[in-house]
Design a protein around this nucleic acid. Sequence first.
DNA 1: CTTGCATAAGCAAACGGTTTCTAATTGCGT
DNA 2: ACGCAATTAGAAACCGTTTGCTTATGCAAG
Lengths: 347, 347
Amino acid sequence: MKSTAPSLSDVAAQAGVSKSTVSRILNNRLGNGFSVKEEVRQRVLEIARKLNYRPNLIAKSLTMRSTKMIHIIGGNHALSQLGNIYQTVVNHITEVIDSQGQGFDVTVDMSKHRPDESEMPAWKIDGAVILARCTEPTMDEILQLGIPYVVINGPAPAGGTSVVPDDVQGTRLALKHLMELGHRKIAYTPPPRKYMMVGHSSITDRQETYLAQMKKNGLDPIISPHDVLDDTEKLLRDLVFEKKATAILAYGHMEALNLLQAAHSLEIPVPERLSVMCFCDHYANRIMSPGLTFIDLGSAQMGTLAAQLLLEQITQPEKQKPKRVVLDETLCVRSTTAPPPSDEQLA
Amino acid sequence: MKSTAPSLSDVAAQAGVSKSTVSRILNNRLGNGFSVKEEVRQRVLEIARKLNYRPNLIAKSLTMRSTKMIHIIGGNHALSQLGNIYQTVVNHITEVIDSQGQGFDVTVDMSKHRPDESEMPAWKIDGAVILARCTEPTMDEILQLGIPYVVINGPAPAGGTSVVPDDVQGTRLALKHLMELGHRKIAYTPPPRKYMMVGHSSITDRQETYLAQMKKNGLDPIISPHDVLDDTEKLLRDLVFEKKATAILAYGHMEALNLLQAAHSLEIPVPERLSVMCFCDHYANRIMSPGLTFIDLGSAQMGTLAAQLLLEQITQPEKQKPKRVVLDETLCVRSTTAPPPSDEQLA
DNA sequence: CTTGCATAAGCAAACGGTTTCTAATTGCGT
DNA sequence: ACGCAATTAGAAACCGTTTGCTTATGCAAG
């Protein structure tokens, strides 16, 4: 009926040996200049079991300088603002790390932080995964403490590891798909201004590649003039009836979803009259808009790879680490893209 | 160029005072037989700031026997399987806890766990929030260690605190709305069989209340016979053309979204010919299906309340804690519900 | 009868804080 | 000049582990 849990000393006292001996026996730190008689070993093990001894991991962490914790940073903004691809990423990270059986615990930081505030937890972590971006103080601290890290879908400082999708190649893939279907009037819908603030590379990469590819193919670019979320129906009327667009490539599934709803309201049949596609991943697509044609950002692959790279950095710090891994995006054709309407259909 | 973080001793040495003095100043443990000259206080604070000193929480926890960590358990299944209401819940929990300024860190467990495995992290936590459910070994461990906890949207063991939405009342609200619009042929679409496995109370509560209310109002219940995700169009054809449903109440936004898409494909106008509504929350509704009429589960309120209750339990353990808090659900009318079509419209 | 070397186990110093106890200085009334 | 409380500060113990170093013992070789 003791109120405190048994400690190493308790076991040692009962067994009539010293703390260090118990520690070494329990952690199998035998050999290497240390040994015990088998009889003593058994006695200690027996007593530890009898007392239901569990090591205090806080104390252990203190001496070992390792918490066996891997922390995912940026969960709040990534999971709630940047769309659901991070859900997939996180799932795959934990899957890889759990399956390695090295006893690492994965946690996700869900607090909101000001941009001038560090997102690092108060305790020491053994590794970090950064979703898209982190605040500057966070990066400073990670570098200062020499904590292994991998950035997913965002920029890493010089020498840092990152895993990013190839948005340029993905955008080309999307346009190629639409052009092969016969579209010539292809519009692009950027994210709402509110999200452009985050300044993610995908925003410029997609838009600029769109502009470049349209030009290269001798087509006139059509970019939605105002915010998608302001008044999607007005936007869509403009794109389809004024600018005569027959296809729209949207920045993300949120924009695509809004466009589809608006098309529905305006009785613009998709895909017969208008093709719609966007960037997203299988998970988001399945849950939120089954049937939407999309460019898969490969979030699952990003998560898996990032976790593997991180574990390598943790377990083999001396090993040369890769700087930046760029993954191809892939096209998933569903049912919202089709050849453009013929001229008589339009009339 | 030191690679290790500055410690209390470093600060003490630089300031020319002892560790204890620094500790007391930094933690505001003045008064009570201890005091410092203001000048020394300022100097110590200044140096701590300059060195960017952050106390080592591991060491601190060792003496204080508290980690200042609040862990959210069940994040993986809740966030990825049970829909996005948990996103809102988590956001509000962190908001409340951050705003209290008591220095608690919130982490979300994202690992997958087998049902016979404990989800408790290896380190000691000061409190836990359980999203919907946790494994049995987890609950055992929490109770054994006497860790304060709150269950959100799920059952708590005897004497435990839980915050749950009133699905019975919510379902009544939904049906009342549809009946007041004039609907008599109201169908209910349960979640895919795959999700029924989790056995959440909402699954039975909604369906049984639906059955009870229909009966009470002398109406024939229409329950979708097969899995929504199997072939939504077939399902919808059956409900609308065979069973003559004019309104559908769906278990969640996933089902509703699929139904809307199918309605679109089948050229069944919503809401003119068919009303659709579901259970979800403002966040999910805004992101995933703007315009959908829904019953708000009050996820924001649940998160806020749960966090407050948990903090109370942590800071005032002796205080009598509430057992089970039931929150009302609310109706949010958007544009997918309207009076049923008249008979001539149907013809 | 020393030396040398395994083998077996303990001592004590970390780790980075908090807290209790104790000591030195100051202020002030007499 | 003296005593006593209040103020200011440091030394040391402690939290529960790990680990480098030391010590004791036994036994074979020189």
